[in-house]
Amino acid sequence: MNDFQQIADRVEIDALRAEFTDAAMMRDRARLAALFTPDGVLRMPNIPVEFTGREEIRTGGERLQSQWDFFVQNSHPGAVDINGDTATGRTYIQEIVRVLDGRSGQNFAVYHDTYRRLPEGWRFAERVYEVRYVDTTPLAGSAPGPDDQAHGAAEMGAPVEETAVADDFAVPVSAERLDRTVAALRANGFAAELLDDVAAARVRMAELIPEGASVFTGASETLRLSGIAEDIETGGRCEAVRPRVLRMDRATESDEIRRLTATPDVFVASVAAVTETGALVIASGSGSQLPASAGGAAKAVWVVGAQKVVPDLATALRRVEEHALPLENVRAQAAYGQPSALNRLLILNAEPQPGRGTVLLVREAVGF
């Protein structure tokens, strides 16, 4: 093989390794999987996981990705040894990560690579991830928010807009953030749809609920204000659980009430927040709606206004405490004569049963 071919091969292999990091950072698991040969293997003994074949690499990577709150990978190409249509090499890695349960840290690692030339170019035949150093000291920083950006601009002498001061949890987010959220939800196993308004959500809800199904509607301002609760509870197409439960005696029929609300055919509700990483956050005072959401219902549909989208789990929890709970307190005081409470919190990071959970994300604000 001539020197020119050797140089061209090294350039292409370096581009392959760089694209792996880019696909990981952009959370583009389909593109990342396509960088492997059809029978390629990704081994990470320290985690430990092993994925074989492009589809397993894609879906396995999506499961791992669903746990991230924050992730950065820096890569430095190492040596490459080319032998015809195969090659070996190493890539040196530094990663900074925080997962949704709050754990964080950084590590240094090495990818031990085997490459193979295919008609479409060089691909990974195998990547073996070896961790050389781990530091689990909690990260002190975070992704920059409006306050950080404003501070940084001021440090450099740039004008700072007065509007970039705090989150407004009542305002719908941008179309770009909605698209990103839908993509993340789908990657995490949810069926996610982006709808223009609540009228479209009402039409879609009627299509999703089988005629004659038992349907439990969670207490939700989103469902009430959109008209979805009324459609279900008075429309006659399905067996509405909530009106039936409200007529039952809580002293003598509590077990039957519990069974009806925990295991309906379909559970319809909203959430307190949805993260751009594809997680749903549900808050409750009594917990009566949580079993159906968590897996008790055969199917679940959550209707979510665009103002409930937040960047990450930390912001989602802040939205619950600073925005949703005060408004729910006012509603509960008027309806029940007592304030609400944040007694139970459910976080759905992913939906392991394909087709079970559907998120109808509406471009306008609805509920709180």
Results as ranks from 00 to 15, higher is better:
residue 347 I to V: 15
residue 329 N to Q: 11
residue 12 E to D: 10
residue 221 E to M: 15
residue 120 E to A: 13
residue 47 I to D: 15
residue 197 D to E: 10
residue 104 S to W: 00
residue 72 V to D: 02
residue 242 R to M: 07
residue 367 G to Y: 03
residue 138 P to A: 06
residue 78 G to P: 06
residue 239 E to V: 15
residue 212 G to S: 06
residue 326 P to N: 09
residue 108 F to P: 00
residue 347 I to D: 04
residue 300 A to V: 14
residue 294 A to Q: 08
residue 297 A to Q: 02
residue 353 Q to G: 03
residue 31 R to Q: 11
residue 235 G to D: 13
residue 332 A to V: 04
residue 154 A to K: 14
residue 228 I to L: 14
residue 315 T to K: 05
residue 365 A to H: 05
residue 224 R to M: 14
residue 218 G to A: 02
residue 368 F to D: 01
residue 109 A to C: 08
residue 123 R to P: 12
residue 230 E to K: 08
residue 24 A to W: 10
residue 6 Q to V: 11
residue 350 A to I: 08
residue 227 G to A: 12
residue 321 E to T: 13
residue 170 A to P: 06
residue 326 P to R: 07
residue 161 E to S: 15
residue 90 R to M: 11
residue 258 R to M: 13
residue 65 Q to D: 01
residue 353 Q to T: 15
residue 284 S to K: 05
residue 135 D to Y: 14
residue 202 R to L: 12
residue 316 A to M: 14
residue 8 A to L: 13
residue 64 L to I: 13
residue 326 P to F: 04
residue 57 I to L: 01
residue 208 L to S: 13
residue 118 L to P: 03
residue 118 L to I: 02
residue 207 E to I: 11
residue 193 E to G: 02
residue 65 Q to I: 07
residue 19 E to N: 15
residue 40 G to R: 09
residue 218 G to S: 03
residue 27 R to D: 07
residue 224 R to C: 07
residue 274 V to N: 00
residue 203 V to C: 02
residue 32 L to N: 09
